[in-house]
């Protein structure tokens, strides 16, 4: 064994150790430069090869080539190890430290329910219409067949302005505005804010939100209304929910009904949420009164249709079991971030 082979063996041992310890690509590059680079060990040894005896030349040459390949292998292996992520330097990761949170926004529960209702009715071919919140008596009451001395017109219940207009008490004036400006058929829903002169308490507010639906066409019947409400109930609460229509009275529909959903808490068996009746009152509906159709210039002998409405706060309170309506308007972030 000659000195060249000794140097090669020594270099191999060094590189084995160094390559195992490197933690970054720069250190690997340094190994390459030191041993294989232009001014590194192997080019230097190659120059010494001239002084090797002919008997040893073959063996030395083989050792030289094997050593150089081995070092290249070690370098490649070290790089591969680094690339796979091993040996990264820096502090150890504490997985329990909090991550840097991306900002998440929150939709208000009233909006969640309004959007959901709108989405369900859009799938059934309704499009959304809107109207002003400061409304006139004609659209809010007269055109909707509300008797002149009906209690809902009383300043006790309705907010008035000096010019005789009011804050709309229902989303129904949107029906009138749409029918005034469109020829039938009409198929709309109108979500929006409405106002009643109620002192705020756990179930009342000065303003709240409704969503209202209207379909006018030839041959529309109470059965169509029932089917739409049934489909809405199922989309909202799942395939097991049932609906029930009860006769009621509204000036702008005839026949008028109220509709209940089977209790979503107990499935109709009776529980505190449904006051042991098995049913939850959702809202009012009916076949549009012929007087209303006449008021907007539709011929009730040709056209018929249904209208329905419901309170969005009530849906939200039922969905999330929110006990007090005022929480919805208080905007405590600990409330808002739950939705």
């Amino acid at each position: 064994m000659n000195t060249i082979i000794e140097k090669i063996n020594q270099a191999l041992a060094e590189v084995e150790a160094k390559a195992a310890a490197v933690v970054d690509a720069a250190a690997v590059e340094q190994i390459r430069i030191d041993y294989l680079g232009r001014n590194g060990l192997f080019p230097a040894l190659s120059k010494e090869m001239g002084g090797v005896t002919p008997e040893e030349r073959r063996e030395t040459g083989r050792a030289f080539n094997a050593g150089r390949s081995r070092i290249q292998e070690l370098i490649d292996a070290a790089l591969a190890r680094l690339a796979s992520g091993d040996g990264a330097k820096g502090e150890a990761i504490d997985l329990t430290l909090p991550g840097r949170r991306w900002k998440t926004g929150h939709k208000h529960p009233i909006t969640i329910l309004a959007d959901e209702c709108v989405a369900i009715f859009r799938r059934m071919g309704f499009i959304v219409a809107e109207g002003p919140e400061i409304e006139d008596i004609f659209h809010n009451f007269d055109a909707l067949n509300t008797p002149q001395d009906h209690p809902s017109r009383d300043p006790q219940d309705t907010f008035y302005f000096a010019d005789g207009r009011i804050l709309r008490t229902q989303t129904s004036p949107v029906q009138i505005r749409v029918m005034e400006s469109h020829e039938p058929p009409v198929r709309i829903v109108a979500p929006g804010r409405v106002f009643r002169r109620d002192t705020p308490d756990a179930t009342h507010g000065m303003n709240f939100h409704q969503i209202e639906g209207l379909y006018i066409d030839k041959g529309v019947s109470l059965a169509d209304l029932k089917s739409v409400l049934q489909a809405f109930a199922i989309e909202m609460y799942g395939p097991r929910v049932k609906i029930r229509l009860r006769p009621h009275f509204f000036p702008f529909t005839e026949p008028s009904v109220e509709y209940d959903f089977s209790c979503i808490m107990c499935g109709g068996k009776g529980c505190p949420v449904c006051k042991h009746s098995g049913w939850i009152e959702i809202a009012g509906a009916g076949m549009v009164d012929p007087a209303v159709l006449k008021n907007v210039g539709y011929d009730p002998e040709i056209w018929s249709g249904y209208a329905f409405g419901m309170g969005i706060e009530r849906l939200a309170m039922l969905r999330y079991r929110i006990p007090d309506l005022r929480l919805l308007y208080e905007n405590d972030v600990r409330f808002l971030e739950q939705f």
Binding site: V118, G125, I127, H182, V186, D217, L222, A223
Partner: peptide
């Protein structure tokens, strides 16, 4: 409807004409 019973109003498939474009949808 009232005396015959609203329960006996049949549940029929939802039908309804397209009566406008989603472009008219103000919401």
């Amino acid at each position: 409807a009232r005396i015959n019973g609203l329960d006996s109003v049949p549940a029929i498939p939802v039908t309804g004409k397209m009566c406008g474009s989603i472009r008219d949808d103000s919401y």
